Simulated assay, not measured.
Amino acid sequence: MKKSLLLLAGLALATTAANAQDVTPANPKTEVEVRDNGTVKTTTKTGKTDVGATLDNTKDAAGNVAVKTGSAVKRGARKTGSVVKRGAKKTTHAVKKGARKTSNAAKEGSQKLEEKTE
């Protein structure tokens, strides 16, 4: 179980990292600025800005947190269920044992009464 969970987590991280590195936009933007002294400044924007990359990483991280939380809740429910089941078995056993003792005591008491009445 742990090995498969670790494998899935590793694949999720590798997929997230691969998606985060895909920063090639469909249309690179080129800006041309002419300064007061007549020189030209050309700026080409390719890829995501820092803010865009951060937003994508945040979405991926939120998805990972949701998956981890869901798994933790599921595991906790399983553990709680098994504890409740075990407690119910113990209680059932104790009740049966007490009933047997009471029954045996009642039988002994009735036998003593029968002996006295004879």
Rank of each mutant, 00 (worst) to 15 (best):
E33T: 13
G47S: 00
D50C: 04
L7A: 07
L7G: 06
P28K: 01
G47T: 01
V32P: 00
K41Y: 10
G38C: 00
K79Y: 04
V23R: 13
T15L: 13
K107P: 03
A61C: 05
E108Y: 15
T42M: 07
G81C: 04
V40K: 03
T24N: 10
E108Q: 15
K74P: 02
K74R: 13
T39N: 09
N19G: 08
K96P: 05
A53G: 06
K97L: 06
T15H: 08
V32A: 00
D36G: 11
P25T: 00
G38T: 01
T49H: 06
V40P: 00
L7T: 13
A9H: 03
M1F: 04
L8K: 13
R100D: 14
T39Q: 12
Q21R: 14
N104S: 13
E114D: 14
T58V: 08
V23G: 07
T46H: 06
A9N: 05
R86D: 09
A105R: 15
L11M: 13
D22Y: 04
K107C: 00
V83W: 11
A26L: 09
D22V: 08
A66D: 05
K89E: 08
S4K: 12
N27Q: 07
A106S: 14
T58P: 02
A12D: 01
A20C: 05
N57D: 10
K74S: 11
P25S: 01
L6W: 03
T91S: 09
L55C: 03
G52F: 02
A99P: 07
A72M: 11
A106L: 15
T30V: 09
H93V: 11
T43G: 00
K74G: 04
T24K: 12
T58W: 07
G87S: 12
S82W: 06
G38Y: 02
V40W: 08
N64M: 14
G63A: 12
H93P: 04
T117R: 15
K68H: 07
G63F: 06
T69I: 09
N57A: 15
T91A: 14
R78C: 03
T15K: 10
N19A: 03
T91C: 04
K41S: 09
N104G: 06
A106N: 12
G76V: 03
L11W: 10
K29L: 14
A14P: 00
G70T: 02
N37D: 14
N64K: 15
A9R: 09
R86W: 06
R100A: 14
E118S: 13
A12K: 04
R75T: 12
K116N: 11
R75L: 04
E31P: 01
A105S: 11
K74Q: 10
D60R: 11
S4N: 01
G47K: 05
T117W: 08
K97P: 00
K3S: 05
N104M: 14
A62M: 11
N64H: 12
T30W: 05
A12G: 02
K89A: 14
E31Y: 14
L7Q: 10
K68P: 01
K41A: 04
L5C: 05
A20S: 07
D22N: 09
K89P: 05
T80P: 01
G87P: 02
T58Y: 12
K79E: 04
G38K: 00
V73Y: 03
A14H: 02
V51H: 03
